[in-house]
Amino acid sequence: MDEKDLIKDAKKGNQRAFAILFQGNYSFLLKYLIKVTMNKTMAEDLAQETMTKCIEKIHLYNENSKFSSWLISIATNLYIDQIRKNKRERNWQQTEQGIRNLKWHLESRNEEWNDVLTVLGKLSDDVRIPIVLKHYYGYSYDEIGSLMKVSPGTIKSRIHNGILTVRKELKLDEQPERDSKRERATR
């Protein structure tokens, strides 16, 4: 049974079809939410809320985009709404805790932690979400704009400024190395 048939059945209220769709997309959704929230527990809560919203709004899904993309748009808007309503007030302490947990997860599996992730975690959600969507998932500025209900121009400038900030933060450590490289080249 392919995705289209499952969606048709889900629209008719078939619970098994919903379950198959969710199980197939759960890991993709959770991985996206971990990148966006930088917090595994928050990502798991949001994934469950996304599935609930999906059951409620399945009749509005027009099948123009992939089902996984539709889940991403629901999850992103849920997260943004929750931040706006201060339900999940993100403070630096909370973010730091989330990052520390992720770091621990990675290190316990002998995986290396990348400092870019720490810097990305420090960025505001309005900036990190478009960066993740653009540079990891390959969405266009227009798609991100319509997903976040912001103009594509604003998205473009947020990504640009976000990248500049990340570069600035990381460059602090690399400066002496870069300078010595440049010196060697001019000699």
Partner: peptide
């Protein structure tokens, strides 16, 4: 970094 996060965090 994101790839490492995908692979490293057990889901």
């Amino acid at each position: 970094g994101f790839d490492q996060l995908d692979e490293g965090v057990e889901i």
